[in-house]
Write a protein that binds this DNA or RNA. Structure first.
Length: 599
RNA sequence: CGGGGUGUAGCGCAGCUUGGUAGCGCGCCACGUUCGGGACGUGGAGGCCGGGAGUUCAAAUCUCCCCACCCCGACCA
């Protein structure tokens, strides 16, 4: 057989590959840095990457795992166009709601298209085209396809791009029980799929954002580089994205015996910190037994809600003074509306609002400002607060909720803090960051209704199916795996993801006996079904080859070196990339040994 | 879109304050020596100094405008 140029063994001497000695300057997070350094990907556009041979192997492996698990779950693969007409998206109002995040294109006739950010509409319309009976349902179909989003800020290499590979599936059921079953089937399939990828993950309660619908959970890889913040309970299994956290509501407190509210002159106290310092220092306001803290204050933040139809509505939110208003959480409550800050010009128009001294006295649709006022759920009747008196340099103490003020409702928008109370068991929660690798939604009938999808039931009456949609970020998973598995030497792939099973290093003089032995070993391994990368580069020192092998991160490294010179017992070194453990294996036993490792 | 930073050889960077013939390391090419942990010597190739305008006898360097990229915030698989 010999060293045929085009046999299945991947040869470093001819592979389209250049590893970099230095970290690329524009890469910050480990996955980005290492994937570029190891020659897997190259940046080709803002938020767009080219896949080089090693990278594309890995890319296909991740895709294959997703496909196999979808098929194993009994879902059917389809493939829709990425370039789609805008009309279906107008019917569901998402052409508007997605706003600047969609790439819009025009054809030569001036017709409008978009590069699909997700495909609910097209799937729904196709089911409408073909199906008309309840007997056709349930149906679950999926695709693995490039998605486009005009991200304001692509970042962190593959973690946030404008073009990415996503698996998206859609379920159609006649009733809620069916939807629940389709949802559960995805949940189970996703658990298998992420376990198989070797990716640590947590499942958290989530909000559905622009997608619409009710129940939704996210699969997060718990890594600090992630952009999502979630909480998990330290004593039970509750976990939630901070956007979806529900705050346990304390019992109301009787307030009949509480002292009346008093307004105090508190000069130069426009912030919580200056206010707390002031009331602790002034004998008139000092607490008899302890120091006041930010937790004793009620902070009122005014923002504007910008609705997709262009209307703008001011909104006031009251939270405990030691917490900020979490704009992400707030926005999640009002999606698809956008939350924008209240500017100085806005303050100028709303003269009842005294910036830095805003209190419940003027807030609320019934009060002077007429601005809708929503409170954090912890601010129950009977709680006592220090808060703004709606007059510059004045605050009010002993202001009691339910007695001295009420709001238009409650809102989940306060910043979630480490040590908060678990809504499920009453324990304490901790905060962590994660990469969103999957998201499952129960959409309900929003899309079917908007697009007129109905089927006939057993009484020949039209019914509207209920839908779910389920996504896995395939290219993002690849980056998440790199994040979760790399070490200081380089990438370190799980075997099923890795671009090959073994990386054979020829460590000897050019023209020495190691070359032919490595060739033979490579050929035999290949024949035994092992995926092989062979570093047969000439004029390359062993040190460079070792470093590259570790950088590239194939799970088993085989070193054909001086060990084969021992005529009585020639050996080849086998090194585990992850553990660093090495052992010498007799040349004759090598293939069997490697095959056993790769199982 | 707001704030911060960076654009000089394929990659990583110096030079800019104080204007005067474009530099270093790695990589690349040739020859030789090396050959188990990013070897060494000798000799080479490679640059519209992000773009445009201006100031000046003279601009990588000073001024203005623009662009791109990275990071932090506002959005999402």
């Amino acid at each position: 057989m010999g060293a045929g140029r085009f046999c299945g063994v991947h040869r470093m001497s001819t592979m389209f590959l250049r590893t970099l000695r230095d970290d690329p300057a524009d890469a910050e997070v480990p996955s980005h840095r290492l994937l570029v350094r190891a020659g897997y990907i190259r940046r080709a556009a803002p938020g767009g990457f080219s896949w080089l041979p090693l990278g594309y192997e890995v890319f296909r492996n991740v895709e294959r795992i997703v496909r196999e698990e979808m098929n194993a779950a009994g879902f059917q693969e389809v493939h829709f166009p990425a370039l789609v007409p805008k009309e279906p998206y107008e019917a569901t109002n998402r052409y508007e709601e997605y706003g600047p995040n969609v790439f819009r294109v025009e054809d030569r006739h001036g017709a409008h298209f978009l590069l699909a950010p997700t495909h609910e509409e097209l799937f729904t319309l196709t089911v409408k085209d073909l199906y008309s009976s309840y007997r056709d349902l349930p149906l679950i179909i999926y695709q693995i396809q490039t998605k486009f989003r005009d991200e304001a800020r692509p970042r962190a290499g593959l973690l946030r791009t404008r073009e990415f590979l996503m698996k998206d599936s859609y379920s159609f059921d006649v009733d809620d029980a069916g939807l629940q079953a389709s949802y559960d089937a995805h949940r189970v399939a996703y658990i298998k799929l992420f376990e198989r990828m070797g990716l640590p993950f947590v499942i958290v309660a989530a909000t559905s954002g622009a997608m619409g619908g009710s129940a939704s959970e996210e699969f997060l890889a718990p890594l600090d580089v992630g952009e999502d913040t979630f909480i998990r309970c330290t004593s039970c299994d509750y976990a939630a994205n901070v956007e979806a956290v529900s705050t346990p509501v304390p019992d109301a407190i009787p307030f009949d015996d509480l002292p009346p509210a008093v307004v105090h002159h508190t000069p130069k106290t426009p912030t919580i910190a200056t206010l707390v310092d002031y009331v602790n220092a002034d004998p008139d306001t000092r607490h008899p037994e302890r120091d006041w803290t930010a937790e004793d204050t009620l902070k009122n933040v005014v923002v504007k809600l910008k609705h997709p139809d262009g209307t703008v509505e001011p909104l006031a939110v009251g939270v405990e003074g030691h917490r900020d208003v979490d704009m992400k959480r707030l926005e999640a409550q009002f999606a698809p509306a956008e939350v924008v800050p209240f500017s100085d010009e806005d303050f100028a128009q709303h003269t009842t609002l005294k910036k830095g001294y805003i209190g419940p006295g003027v807030l609320g649709s019934e009060n002077a400002s007429g601005i809708r006022y929503l409170l954090d759920p912890r601010i129950v009747d009977g709680t006592t607060w220090i808060t703004g008196a709606d007059e510059y340099d004045h605050h009010v103490l002993q202001l009691v909720a339910g007695r001295d003020f009420t709001a238009d409702g409650t809102i989940e928008a306060a910043e979630v803090l480490d040590g908060d109370i678990c809504p499920s068991c009453g324990g304490t929660v901790e905060i962590a960051r994660g990469i969103e690798i999957g998201h499952i939604f129960q959409l309900g009938r929003k899309y079917a209704e908007a697009l007129g999808l109905t089927v006939r039931d057993e009484n020949d009456q039209p019914i509207t199916p209920t839908m779910g949609s389920y996504g896995v970020g395939v290219s993002r998973c690849l980056a998440a795996i790199a994040e979760a598995t790399h070490d200081e030497h380089g990438l370190c792939w799980p075997r099923e993801i890795a671009p090959a099973d073994v990386h054979i290093v020829v460590a000897g003089k050019d023209g020495g006996p190691q070359g032919p032995v490595a060739e033979t070993v490579a050929t035999e391994l290949e024949a035994a079904g092992v995926r092989v990368v062979l570093d047969d580069r000439q004029k390359t020192s062993p040190g460079v080859k070792f470093k590259d092998a570790e950088l590239i991160g194939i799970p088993t490294i085989v070193v054909v070196g001086r060990g084969i010179a021992d005529e009585a017992n020639p050996v080849i070194e086998v090194k585990d990339r992850k553990t660093g453990g090495r052992e010498d294996i007799a040349v004759d036993a090598l293939v069997d040994h490697i095959v056993a490792r790769c199982r």
